[in-house]
Design a binder for these strands. Sequence first.
DNA 1: ATCGGAAGGC
DNA 2: GCCTTCCGAT
Length: 470
Amino acid sequence: MDCNCVSDLLLPPVPTLWTPGLTKSIAFPDWAYKPESSPGSRQIQLWHFILELLQKEEYHGVIAWQGDYGEFVIKDPDEVARLWGIRKCKPHMNYDKLSRALRYYYNKRILHKTKGKRFTYKFNFSKVVLVNYPLLDMANSPFLLAQNHFTNGSSTAPDCSPEALQSLFPRLPDSGRVASLFDRGATAPSPEGDKLRLDAFPFLSSGAPCYSKPPSLLGPYPRSPPFDYPWGFNPYLPGAFSLNNCPKLPPGSLYPSHFYPNPLQSSLSGLPHPFSSLLHPGGDAGDRAGTGPAGATNGTVGGPAARLGLPPYPVSMSMGRTDLLSGAGLGAREGSPPGVGGLGIGLGLAAGPPGTRPQSPSERRGGVKQDPESDSDLEITDLSDCSSDNENDHEFSKAARSRSQIILEGKKGGMLPPLSSSLPPPMSPHPLKSLVPLTPPRPSLPPSLSPSLALHERHRETETLKMIHS
DNA sequence: ATCGGAAGGC
DNA sequence: GCCTTCCGAT
C-alpha cells in the first residue's frame, strides 16, 4: 500500500538562489527544506505543488499566473487535479476534491478566491514570504508593507501572527520575532543557530545582486541525496555557492533576461538602505541581465519569492531536474547529464534548446504532439507505483487525460505586470539596518569573470559575517 | 462554479 | 495537521 511515487523520493534539493557569476548561497534554514517542516505532513502541500506548477512554463497551459500579482488561473482544472492526484498517489483526485483542499487554505489565508473569475485564486504572499523568512518580525518589518500590496489593497490584513506562522512551520521555536534572530546567536552560538540566523537573511551577507534561481519549492524532496552536478558542482554541498566556489556555467549559457521578479521587489526598493542598495547595487541593476528593472533585482531578496515560484515576469523557467513532473524520477532527459537541469533551471536551459518551448501537458495530450509516448520522460502518467484502492485505477490517467482540453493562450508564460505602485514609506527602520555594513556600489562584472573580484567578495563576506557575529 | 460542514485517513 | 471524500446548499 505504499506509495512509491518517485516524485517524492528522488528529487534533489536545489539552492535557493542562483547567482550567475557572483554565486552566493542563500539557503534557508535546513528545516525549511525538509518535508517534515510541512505541518502535520511529510508530504508536499498543495500550495507548494501549485506554486511548483506555476513556475513551469510547460504547465502554463494548465495553470498560470494571471491577473493581479499572486493571482493564478487554473486553466485546466482536470489536469491540475490529475497532476495533484499523481503527486499524492490519489488516482481519484478530481477538481472538486482539489478545490476543497484549496478552500481549506482560505482559513489559513494562504490562498483566497478571486471572486467572479472562474478557477482563479490568489496567493497571500504574506504567508508565502513568512514561510521563507520565518524569523522576520513581520509586524515591525517593512516587509509587512509588502503584504497589503498583494491583497489588492483591500480587506484583510495579512496574517503574520506567530500563530499563523506556527501553522505552517510549527517547528519554529519562536517565529516572527526578529529578536530571536540575534538572541540565538548571542546566547547559544550553535552552528545551527548561526546558520539559521544568517541563512534566513540573505541580505545580511553579501549585497551581491543575486539572480534568483527558479525555485524548488519548499520541497517534498529529501535534501541531501547524492547527486552529480555538471561541471563538478554540487550546489547542495556546503559552500557550494560561496563566493570562492563558483559553479561553472555551462558552455554557451547566458544569464537569461527573464529572471523572476520579486513580489518584494517594489516594496523593498522603496525602503531605505540597506534594502534599496541591495536591490539596486551600484544604482544600476538593470544593465546586468540586460533587462528592465525586474531583471537583476529580484535575486537578493528574491529568495523567498523565487523559491516559491512567485509570479514570474516575464517568463518562468522550467524546473528541470527538480521537476518531478518533468519526470525527474523517471530518468533524466536523454542527452542531458544528470543535474543539468539542476543548474539549468537557473539558466533557463532546462526548458529546452534555445528558441524552443517546452510542450505543455495539455499540448501533448491535445494531440499537438503526435507521439504521446515519446516524451514520457516529461510527464509522470504512470501510477503503477501508487497504491491502488481501485481496480480501475489504471483508467484514471486515461480518463483524466481524455477529459482534459487544450487550453492555450496567445501569450507565453504567466505575464504579470510588475508592481508599479509605490509603497508608503517604511514605518520604522528595519531592525537589521544597523547591522548591515554599508556597501559600496558593486561593479557589474560578475566575479566569475573576475577572479580578483571574487576574492574581494569573499573578503567582504567574511567581514560581514564577523560584524554580524560580533 | 463555489462554498463549507462533516467524517475519516494517515 | 493536511488533506481526501462526500455532499447539500447557494
